[in-house]
């Protein structure tokens, strides 16, 4: 089997935009995304000798990129308090005194498994994700986009499990509300 080879002079043209977009989905800030791509290429150059050629050049670079994105999240968490006590952190949905939804969830008429085949809906989620308050966005990205398991997030980011469930529940509810307002046009319906 032919070993995959490395051609660093082509990295920017071949993978630059793709890596940048991949990072932007996760970190939102274009300046930081640029920096992470740069740090990734630099780290890749330092470890070219360890490239065994078992994976493609692209997968190898993306592997390093994922590590660098997580490093970035670990860096930000030093200044982040993952509490949920502020008014804007509250659950966007309300219940009546007997515990029923004040605004009933509507049928989206979608098969959850096939929903992601809908390009425009996926784009709508990306926009809603960018509108989430930062601490909710970070935790949601780690859990649902990076696919980290809950225990790892709690350990790495110093979040108590009960707090993690609350943050994820609020994040999902905020995304649901945003999609209903901008995509499903259900806002205001009862």
């Amino acid at each position: 089997m032919n070993k995959q080879s490395i051609d660093a002079s082509q990295w920017v043209d071949r993978y630059g935009d793709l890596m940048y977009r991949f990072t932007l989905v996760r970190v939102k800030d274009p300046g930081i995304a640029e920096e992470i791509v740069q740090v990734t290429f630099f780290a890749a150059l330092q470890s070219v000798h360890s490239f065994a050629g078992r994976s493609s050049e692209k997968s190898w670079l993306f592997g390093i990129l994922k590590h660098k994105i997580l490093d970035h999240f670990r860096e930000v968490k030093k200044n982040r308090i993952y509490d949920t006590s502020l008014p804007e952190d509250q659950d966007p949905f309300e219940y009546d005194p007997s515990g029923h939804w004040r605004k009933m969830p509507q049928n989206w008429n979608l098969d959850p498994e096939k929903a992601s085949e809908n390009q425009a809906l996926t784009e709508a989620l990306a926009r809603c994700l960018d509108d989430l308050p930062e601490k909710f966005r970070e935790v949601f990205v780690l859990k649902e986009i990076e696919g980290l398991d809950s225990e790892q997030i709690c350990n790495d980011f110093n979040i108590k499990p009960t707090n993690l469930w609350v943050i994820l529940h609020r994040a999902r509810n905020k995304l649901k509300k945003c999609l209903e307002t901008h995509w499903f046009d259900l806002e205001g319906q009862d």
């Binding site: 959850p112 996926t122 994700l129």
Partner: peptide, 18 residues
């Protein structure tokens, strides 16, 4: 579950958005 499935798609190497 729909939100989860959309997020998973967003996370792919061949980013479907932007």
């Amino acid at each position: 579950q729909t939100i989860r499935s959309l997020a998973k798609k967003l996370g792919q190497e061949d980013v479907p958005v932007k």
